[in-house]
Nucleic acid binder design. Sequence first.
DNA 1: GGCGCTGCGCTTGTATACAAAAATGTTGAC
DNA 2: GTCAACATTTTTGTATACAAGCGCAGCGCC
Lengths: 217, 217
Amino acid sequence: MDVRRADHILDNLEQMIVTGSFAHGERLDEIRLSEQFGVSRTPIREALQKLVASGLVEQRPRRGVFVIEPGPVELVEMFEAMAELEASCGYLAAKRITEANLQALQDVNELCKRAVAAPDADKYYAHNEKFHHLIYEAAQSSYLRDLALRLQKRLKPYRRLQLHLRGRLEQSMAEHEAILRALADGDSKRTADELRGHVAVQGEKFHHLLSHLKSKR
Amino acid sequence: MDVRRADHILDNLEQMIVTGSFAHGERLDEIRLSEQFGVSRTPIREALQKLVASGLVEQRPRRGVFVIEPGPVELVEMFEAMAELEASCGYLAAKRITEANLQALQDVNELCKRAVAAPDADKYYAHNEKFHHLIYEAAQSSYLRDLALRLQKRLKPYRRLQLHLRGRLEQSMAEHEAILRALADGDSKRTADELRGHVAVQGEKFHHLLSHLKSKR
DNA sequence: GGCGCTGCGCTTGTATACAAAAATGTTGAC
DNA sequence: GTCAACATTTTTGTATACAAGCGCAGCGCC
C-alpha cells in the first residue's frame, strides 16, 4: 500500500496548504504534525523539505518552515509566467503537432463547448485543463511540459476563482477556437500569441477579482 | 560558519555530480557518503532529497537515488526550453526595460566585446552570463527569472563545451548586438526571436558536438 | 522606566538505533 | 550445469535520542 509514509504525508500537506488549512505565514510545527499523522518527525521533515523545493513553503534555517501565501504581485507574476510557458508550448506545438493530436484537441474542445452550453462550470474546468495538457504534450518537450504542469498545478486554486465570472466561459471558448485555428494552420507565432492572451486574460480577471475583494472590505 | 551541514553537503554533491565525479546511473551510497563527509546519514539524506527535487538525481523507492546523466534527447529539450524561457524574458523585458537597465546591458556587452578581442573565452563566458542575467532581471518577473536561472545553472556544464568552437564568439557577439537593438527599440517580438535564436544556436552547436564525439568513437 | 544581559525552555538539526524490504549468496533438486 | 527456494547481508525508511541555536521571560543595571 503506502510503501513510503513520507509520500502520503507530502500529498496531504500539499492539499492542506492549497486548501488553506494553514494561516498565512504560519509555522508548520514538526512535532504537532508528527502527532497529527501518527509518525515520527523524520518522515515529516522529509515531506517538508519537498514542500520547500516545490515552493509552497519557505524554510528559515533553525527557525522552521513557514507557509508562503503569495501576494498579489507574486500571483500576477506567476500568471504571467504561465502565459509565457503556454505560449512557448504553443509555439513548438504548432510546428510539431500531428493530425491525431489535433483531432484529440478538437474532441476535447467539443466537450468544452457542451459544458458551456449546459452550463457546467466544473465539467468545463476539467475539459479545459485537458485541452491545455494536450498542448503541453504536443510541444514534444518534456522539460517544458513539466514546467507548465508544475505551474499550472500551483495556480489551480486561484484559477478556479475566476471561472464563475459572467461571460468568461463563452469568451474562453472563443479563444480556444482561435488557438485551434492557429495550430491547424501550423502558425507558431499566432498560436503563441493566442495562448499568451488566453492565459493572460485569466491573470487579469484574477487581478480584477482581487482588487474587487479588497475594495469591498 | 556552516550552520547547517546539510547545505554544505548539498553544494558539494551538486558540484561533484555536474563535474562528473559519479558514473552515469551510479547509486549514491548513503553510508559511503556519510563516511566521506564525516557526518551521519541524516544530513546526507536531506541533501539527496534536495538533489532529487532539483532534478539532478532520480529516486527509486526502497532502491536509492541514482545520478541522471541526461541523454542527447533530454539535453536538446532542455536547450530548447532555455531558448523559450530566454525568449519570454526578452519579450517582457522589451516592454519594461529602463534606461539604466539598458545602459547596464550595453556596458556588459562592451566587456564581452573586449573579451572576444583578447580573446579570452573564460572572461567572455562570465560577461555573457551577466548579460543574460540582466535580461532576466529586466523582465521584472521573479518567477520567470528564477526558472531561467535554474535551467541556466543546470545547462552550465554543457554550454561551456561549445564555447571554444571556432568563430562562435564572434557570432555570439553579433547576436548580442541584434538583441540590444531590439530591446532599445522596445520591440518585444523581435527581442524574443533574437534571443530564441541566440540560445537555440547553442543547443544546435551542442548537438553537433555530440554527434561529432559519437562518430569519433 | 527603559535597556541589556542571562538562563531556561522550546524547536530545529544531527546522530544512532531499529524495522523492513531488496539484493545477494548458498544450497539443493532436477 | 541450471534454476529455484531459502537464508544472509546490505540498504533504505522510520523512530528515538542527543546537541545546539533561537526566543523569551526574568532580572539587574543605568
